[in-house]
Simulated assay, not measured.
Amino acid sequence: MTSLRVAQLLVAPLLAASLTACLTACGGDPIDDYCTSLKDHQQELTDTLGEGGPSGLIAALPIFKDLERNAPDDIEKDWTRLTTVVGDLDAALEKAGVSADDFENGKPPEGVSQAEAKRIADAATAVSSKKTQQASVRVQQQARDVCHTSLTL
């Protein structure tokens, strides 16, 4: 037996043991971690989004960010899209000093400047855009197919 073959036979089990130890110590399977996080947040997310409209989305932003941090590579970009557009809406509302609940029939409350109203409207348009809807659909599909968890955004 050549020395290269002997080295391979000795090194392979060590690498396998190291990989197993790392998967355990380094946080395990990313998909499992994501699915666990998703299931842990499922009821809270359902309750928060049940508030409806932009207020529910904004209230869910911390949950979205946590799920984005745990998201596997194949849907991380979709979670980033969701957290970005909802975060931008939250920032626009905060900068104007109003909440989503302050709007009646899409009209801003008194004291909101035209520039602030435009920023808010642009951010709301991004939230309801086709790209955001597609990201939401992909995230929900991933939850069903991979995590076997119902998620409604």
Score class of each variant (00 low, 15 high):
Leu38Val: 02
Gln42Ile: 02
Leu89Met: 14
Asp40Asn: 14
Ile75Gly: 06
Leu89Lys: 04
Leu67Val: 00
Asp78Asn: 15
Ile63Thr: 11
Glu44Ile: 01
Ile75Thr: 05
Pro72Tyr: 12
Gly52Ser: 06
Thr48Asn: 06
Leu61Glu: 02
Ala59Arg: 02
Asn70Gln: 13
Ala60Gly: 02
Glu51Cys: 03
Leu61Trp: 01
Ala91Ser: 11
Asp47Val: 15
Gln42Cys: 10
Gly50His: 05
Ser55Met: 00
Asp78Val: 09
Leu49Gly: 07
Thr46Gln: 15
Asp40Trp: 04
Asp74Cys: 04
Glu76Phe: 10
Glu44Phe: 11
His41Pro: 10
Thr80Pro: 00
His41Leu: 04
Pro54Leu: 10
Leu49Thr: 03
Thr80Asp: 09
Ser37Leu: 12
Asp90Ser: 12
Leu45His: 15
Glu68Lys: 09
Thr83Pro: 06
His41Thr: 05
Ala71Asp: 03
Glu68Gly: 09
Phe64Ser: 04
Leu67Ile: 07
Pro54Glu: 12
Ile58Phe: 03
Gly50Leu: 07
Ser55Tyr: 01
Leu93Gly: 06
Arg81Met: 07
Leu38Gln: 06
Thr36Glu: 14
Gly87Thr: 02
Leu93Cys: 03
Val86Asn: 05
Thr80Met: 06
Lys77Ala: 15
Thr48Gln: 00
Leu89Thr: 04
Asp47Cys: 13
Leu49Phe: 12
Leu89Pro: 02
Thr36Gly: 11
His41Asn: 14
Ser55Thr: 12
Leu67Ser: 06
Glu51His: 13
Arg81Asn: 08
Arg81Glu: 05
Lys39Thr: 14
Glu44Met: 07
Gln43Ile: 12
Lys77Met: 11
Leu61Asn: 01
Trp79His: 04
Gln42Val: 07
Glu68Met: 08
Leu57Thr: 00
Asp66Met: 08
Leu57Trp: 04
Gly52Leu: 11
Lys65Ile: 08
